[in-house]
Simulated scan of single mutants.
Amino acid sequence: MKRSSVIVIALALLGAGGAGLYAWSPPAITGPSETRPLIGGAFSLVDTNGKRVTDADFRGKLMLVFFGYTHCPDVCPTGLQQAADVLAKLGPDAGEVVPVFISVDPARDTPSVMKSYVEQFDPRIAGLTGDAAEVAAAAKAYRVYYRKAGSGDDYSVDHSAYVYLMDRNGKFITNFMFNAPVDVMVDGLKKQIAADVARDAIAPPTKS
């Protein structure tokens, strides 16, 4: 296993407090927003078609946000396949969820590179990149660690490997660990979707 992968997995285990690679926090679907961790926020990046997008473009959908890069040897392909499998198992509910894959290697991950990469897994995955400052700002908002390792063209990027579940307003709900079982993720997402439906059904009518 390459050094970068070891660091990524070690960071995930540390973040879980030693609870194990598949550990995750149950969705806080009814908890007040002020008790949630300060994870997430505004970002401005470029999608795989070269279009400028912001976090606001994903409002109304649940987001599965994770960071990585196209030259990643194992962690990122695993994460992307995980996202594709989640969408497949969600069936009709997949339209309520958008996996968002943000590059931490903007020097190599151009929009066209990201496009060909994410489409190998599922075209519904939103691949985002940007310049170094834009990527750094997004990573900071999500409390994501990343660091270039090596020199020349054959470098790697060490990075943390959380998958963040964000609500329809872009607020943090919970996180899944690297390589969490797909069924666990699907179950959490279905519960969140059901909770959203129930909340909307009892919401007071909007005043005209």
Rank of each mutant, 00 (worst) to 15 (best):
L62F: 15
T48F: 01
A56C: 07
L45W: 07
G152S: 09
P77F: 08
V98C: 02
G50E: 08
Q120D: 09
A107I: 09
D109S: 09
K148E: 10
H71R: 12
E96P: 01
I29V: 14
D167M: 04
F172R: 04
G60N: 10
P77C: 03
E134T: 11
K171C: 06
S5Q: 07
S160H: 03
T78I: 11
A141T: 08
A195M: 11
V53P: 10
G15N: 11
G31M: 13
A94V: 09
S151V: 12
S4F: 00
H159V: 00
M1V: 09
P32S: 12
F43E: 03
G31P: 02
Y142P: 01
N175W: 11
D158A: 09
Y155Q: 06
M166S: 06
V182H: 08
A12S: 13
R147E: 14
G50M: 11
A12P: 00
I193P: 02
I39W: 06
A83I: 08
I39P: 02
L14A: 12
A23I: 01
G95T: 14
Y117V: 02
I102W: 04
A132I: 12
L80T: 10
D57V: 12
S25F: 04
A84V: 11
T54I: 06
D47H: 11
D154M: 10
V86P: 04
V118Y: 03
